[in-house]
Amino acid sequence: MSTCAPTPPTAANATPPLLDVRGLYKTYALPRGQKLKAVDGISLSVTHGEVLGLVGESGCGKSTLGRCLLRLTDVSAGQILFNGQDITKLPERALRPLRPHMQMVFQDSYASLNPRRRITDLLAEPLRVHPTATGQKRSSSAITARLHELMERVGLPLSALERYPHEFSGGQRQRINIARALALSPKLIVADEPVSALDVSVQAQIINLFADLQAQLGLTYVFVAHDLAVIRQISTRVAVMYLGAIMELGQTDTVLHNPAHPYTLALTQAVPQPVIGAIRPPPLRGDIPSPVSRPAGCRFHTRCPIAQPLCRAEEPALRQISTHRAVACHFPLA
């Protein structure tokens, strides 16, 4: 087993984590009194400068969780602390000064850019809306200088500023979205499936860009993706989600190379690899149950190859199994 580089404990203890989530719930009311628990009691923290990957299949709540973290969706219960400050119930007005520090990049690069505005206008808007750290309005020359700097950071020519979103390819548009997210020098970026709509050859460019920016600017990411290989490439820590809850949490290399949860193992085995002679039988049978009627006991027991009677009766809590690792399984593999 690989020993992962531990997160520096001194730094983590001295300052509060950038993001601290405690017992978070997000429930949607459906017709006929049904409830959909999209996020079902999640606790996790993200330290300064780390990349936390959220991975799971559709309906696992990874995108909802990402949106809750930035208060783009109101939470049903629980607490979100951003930089030590409780933002769970902050009204919009009080949240606005914090917005420059938390930004988002979305999956659909086209839908997230107003098609009728030039790139220069799209990127300048956050700079016009938000004053500087000292509370001053930015001058137009300062904004222009910042736009030029941003274009260089994301690898686009300055001429791109005068063009419209439809004139760019998907990869270039995602660069523009990243530039806009960076405009106000945020501390945290939540990226929701930012590369899943891109072709492989372009996907690699954007993953590299995310990694470079993180190293250069000391950014913190919460990176949401369904693709395990993408998550492995970008994130330092990973949370594997299933039907609204975290199944396993730990250092990326430890979790993916030596999974403790049967679901994590199944995910790693299900990814079709571009190598010959590695055809394996499908690790799981059946489909993901509907989050509206999630199974009692362990939520994974209906598909779990090693389920025991206990798993049907009692839900396992997410418990620490080593310093930087937690798993929600009665019978962990590691």
Partner: peptide
């Protein structure tokens, strides 16, 4: 350019320029 799921994790993925 496909990120590997096993083995060493490259600091930079090999890419194909432009589109």
């Amino acid at each position: 350019s496909i990120p590997p799921i096993t083995g060493p994790r490259p600091a930079h993925l090999p890419t194909i320029a432009s589109a």
